[in-house]
Nucleic acid binder design. Structure first.
Length: 875
RNA sequence: GCGAAAGUGGCGGAACUGGUAGACGCGCUGGACUUAGGAUCCAGUUCUGGAAACAGAGUGGGAGUUCAAGUCUCCCCUUUCGCACCA
């Protein structure tokens, strides 16, 4: 009976067993408490990588654990299947994005199944399927009806050569990634979601998400970026014909208004071209605007970016000081923030200060520190701290904090401004001029304007019979069979279908609701199912989605809530952001980065397999194809199997931290599983027909009693580690200790130290210990556990087993080790029966030989007794 | 620049509310079993001195609180991450 541990054999066996017996299927069961465990669904790029493996392993352990704790666990998986890589691959490989995507999905599904994850595959969804996106289109129309969607002009990265829009990551140093021509900012009519309507609510609820990592909450708050201040209107002096007479600005420092000496408009500000139209400044200004438009946004955001601007030739009037302020346009003013106009106060704002210095503009100090005066001539930088008001008319000598409010009040009374807030968060632009996405369900009619597609005509199916164009331009606008349509409102046939598709973040903003009833045909989801399952109890994914995906999902949930479709506002009760999977990089002088299999060992040295030269080991970095420090999960599966891979992912680091990949660590995990396997197989005969011990511990001898107690301690430790902190690494080491204890016991027996007869309860205790080890390990290494569970004579899948509880009596210590410190330093220790009183312990400690040695002649000043732990003698 | 997190053996990492620092694993050293083992089992492994008993030092650096500090407070250094012309 010396069966070897053969991971592949048993893993395939149990995967098909679970499948055939439908063990992973779930449905609503009002009699059971639900637990919705969700991992972020992947983009079907072709293969799963170690990041997925780690993410989904963590999730699977929790899902299986919660299930054994009696919860009705929803644990679904699907595909975030729209997006650009499919288009790129399609062009490169002369295939179709749909074909490419579905093939990838098949491959990745197969890989995930091979990992043994406990998904209910009947709930699988692909966002590129019309069954899915028709409800996204439906919701778009509902949002349109509620004025949650609107259209406005916005800038996109545009490559004139390829005639296409580019995503930010396709712009490399201001150039098109494909043709290396200059990318321009181009204005296009686009669709937007009014996420800013919810800015305040999204911010407020940040503090009502105790199950979220602090870090993510902070990132969300920063992203929403609320600031309080005032909107102030500056009249324009002699505005040209047909131009609004004033410039509204947003400022957080209304107290410095008297110090505003010039105005800066963003280059994109519509007023700029109007002000210079027909003037001598026109060509200079327009050149400047044009130059800014061709600049890559990332270049513009670079550190130490030189401030630069031009005078428009116009002036506006400071509403309080009545000073004539020149109007500039400059690169540091952003159209997206506030009103796109800045009242510049060089004395009290660093950017304005630098700009004023460069262009010789006036600096007026209006806030001075309490202990000194400021001389504008000699200032080296702006003074941005608090102080006392000066040069500010009736507000002089106030504290600037007080003046903020007073000035704002004064402005409101005079109708020159008002108190307001500004958010950094912008409305969500969802238009993509791309092919592989969900079509926006809108029809443009020459008579009726914008008309939503009627519900009965949904879905607007993305046509599959298209030729993708070199350069990445969407084929949709030229596809007449798609664009030509009749208007649903007036019936005229000269209407044109919208050809923009939706941002893929839209699909991922509600997929978790769709999982509740993935086959629902007559609604976006089944109301009862969503009421039962949602919200998600535990969401697990990478920090890279800490802002956009999570914020959009929170926003979408609010939209659904306000439409009365769901009862909750927050979709994810608890969030875990797992760390990255990292590995050292290896590179060769000649060949650059090397894949792990391009490195060969010769003696002590590591050499490049291409040229034989020695390689250098680089820093530990996130696994990435470009750095070649990747491990293919398939290779691990072949060599060690799914259980070892899972075990190592969990053991090497706690989930929220980065994990450093180590081949030797994987070996160690494999070795541990073999240890468990061998012990179980060796004990099989002995325990097969025996019931697990659950009797009076006093019936056991010392050896068995100790083992029995240790087992209960392990149950407690593992349960706490998983339940409270998801610290699987310490849970695993607790089980390792228990396994080591089993081996130690056998070693002692073999060494002949215990010649006494076998204790009558030995088999039953052993059975209890082994059953426990198998159950405790089963969420982590489910296949091995199933196999051993079966082999040791248990019935049913270990999935059906109940998570063990620990017996208080078995945890109770009989003896305590008391530590003796002298002046805080550890000097000695002794054991006492657990019920020894503090006074007695103190007495024993003061008699302790070693302790006395350190006390010597010195008088004892004080003795501190910490219950059940230690005695500190102060001399 | 602002904000957050983290610095513990040769390495990955333990140490719950201040109370035995280094669990568990890797690596290394020695031994056993073996034709052989890179398999397995056993023992050792923070550093310094010592054959050992034992003693001293020790959680990035420096101060402080405390009977007692990896853990709390202050200052500094380093690393990682996030934000960064946000008016």
């Amino acid at each position: 009976m010396d069966e070897k541990y053969d991971p592949e054999k048993i893993e395939l066996k149990w995967q098909s067993y679970w499948d055939q017996h439908g063990l992973m299927k779930v449905w609503e069961d009002p009699g059971k408490e639900k637990y919705y465990l969700l991992e972020m669904f992947p983009y079907p790029s072709g293969k799963i990588h170690m990041g997925h493996v780690r993410n989904y392993t963590i999730g699977d352990v929790v899902a299986r654990y919660k299930r054994m704790r009696g919860f009705n666990v929803l644990h679904p998986m699907g595909w975030d299947a729209f997006g650009m890589p499919a288009e790129n691959a399609a062009i490169a490989n002369r295939t179709h994005p749909a074909k490419w995507t579905y093939e990838n999905i098949d491959n990745m599904r197969h890989q995930l199944k091979r990992m043994g994850f406990s998904y209910d595959w009947d709930r699988e969804i692909s966002t590129c399927s019309p069954d899915y996106y028709r409800w996204e289109q439906w919701l778009f129309i509902k949002m349109y009806e509620r004025n949650m969607v609107y259209r406005k002009e916005a800038y996109v990265n545009w490559c004139e050569h390829c005639q296409t829009v580019l995503a930010n990551e396709q712009v490399e140093a201001g150039l098109c990634w494909r043709c290396s021509k200059t990318v321009r900012q181009k204005k296009l009519e686009q669709w937007f979601f009014r996420i800013t309507d919810y800015a305040q609510d999204l911010l407020d609820y940040c503090d009502k998400l105790p199950g979220w990592p602090e870090k993510v909450i902070t990132m969300q708050k920063n992203w929403i970026g609320k600031s309080t201040g005032a909107e102030i209107r500056f009249p324009i002096q002699n505005p040209p014909e047909g131009v609004q007479g004033e410039i509204p600005v947003f400022t957080t420092r209304p107290d410095t208004l008297f110090g505003a000496t010039f105005m800066v408009l963003a280059p994109e500000h519509p007023l700029v071209s109007k002000l210079v139209g027909g003037t001598e400044n026109e060509s200079v200004v327009l050149d400047f605007i044009d130059r800014m438009a061709t600049q890559d946004r990332s270049v513009r955001a670079l550190e130490n970016y030189e401030k630069e601007g031009v005078f428009t030739g116009s002036y506006c009037i400071n509403p309080l000081s009545e000073r004539k302020m020149p109007i500039y346009t400059a690169n540091f003013a952003l159209m997206e923030y506030g009103t796109g106009a800045v009242m510049s106060v060089p004395a009290h704002d660093q950017r304005d200060f630098e700009f004023a210095q460069k262009y010789g503009l006036d600096i007026i100090v209006v806030v001075r520190p309490e202990d000194r005066d400021l001389d504008p001539q000699n200032m080296k930088e702006a003074y941005t701290d608090d102080g006392i008001m000066v040069n500010s008319g009736i507000f002089n000598s106030m504290r600037n904090k007080d003046a903020m409010e007073k000035i704002t009040d004064y402005l409101s009374q005079k109708g020159l401004g008002r108190k307001t807030v500004s958010f950094r968060l912008k409305d969500w632009g969802i238009s993509r001029q791309r092919y592989w996405g969900a079509p926006i369900p809108i029809i443009h009619c020459k008579n009726c304007g914008i008309v939503p597609v009627p519900e009965k005509d949904l879905p607007v199916v993305l046509p599959e019979n298209v030729d993708l164009l070199e350069g990445g331009k969407s084929p949709l606008p030229k596809l007449e069979a798609f664009t030509n349509t009749s208007c649903p409102a007036c019936g005229k046939s000269n209407a044109r279908r919208e050809t923009d598709t939706m941002d893929t973040f839209v699909e991922s903003s509600w997929y978790f609701e769709r999982y509740c009833s993935p086959d629902c045909h007559n609604a976006i989801f089944d109301r009862d199912a969503v009421d039962y399952w949602m919200p998600v109890d535990q969401y697990i994914g990478g920090v890279e989605h800490a802002i956009l995906h999570l914020l959009y999902s929170r926003y979408y949930t609010r939209v659904l809530h306000d439409m009365g479709l769901v009862k909750f506002k927050e979709p994810f009760t608890r969030l875990l952001t797992q760390g990255m999977v990292c590995k050292e990089t290896v590179s060769c002088m000649e060949h650059g980065y090397l894949f792990p299999n391009q490195v060969e060992t010769s003696g002590e040295h590591l050499n490049c397999s291409l040229c034989g030269k020695p390689v250098s080991i680089g820093r530990v970095e996130k696994m990435s194809k470009s750095k070649k420090n990747v491990i293919d999960p398939n290779v691990l599966l072949e060599k060690y199997g799914a259980d070892t891979t899972r075990l190592f992912c969990l053991f090497a680091a706690p989930p929220e931290r980065d994990l450093e990949w180590s081949e030797q660590g994987v070996e160690g995990s494999f070795r541990f599983l073999n240890r468990v396997w061998r012990f179980a197989i060796a004990s099989m005969e002995e325990i097969k027909d025996v019931k697990a011990f659950d009797g009076n511990i006093n019936e056991l001898n010392d050896e068995l009693k100790l083992l029995f107690k240790k087992t209960h301690e392990t149950i407690q430790k593992v349960t706490n580690d998983i339940e409270e902190r998801f610290h699987f690494n310490t849970a695993i080491s607790a089980v390792m200790e228990l396994v080591n204890a089993l081996y130690a016991m056998e070693a002692e027996r073999e060494a002949g130290k215990r010649v006494d007869e076998k204790h009558p309860e030995r088999a039953s205790v052993l059975r209890f210990v082994l059953d426990t080890i198998i159950i405790l390990l089963s969420p982590i290494v489910p296949h091995l556990s199933e196999e051993l569970w079966e082999k040791t004579g248990n019935r049913n899948s270990v999935l059906m087993a109940k998570w063990p509880s620990y017996r208080e009596d078995a945890l109770a210590k009989e003896e305590l080790t008391i530590v003796i410190q002298v002046n805080g330093k550890l000097r000695s220790r002794f054991t006492v029966p657990a019920d020894t009183q503090d006074e007695a312990i103190k007495k024993l400690a003061l008699q302790d030989e070693k302790a006395l040695k350190f006390i010597g002649e010195k008088p004892v000043k004080k003795v501190i007794v910490v219950k059940k732990k230690l005695v500190n003698i102060v001399v």
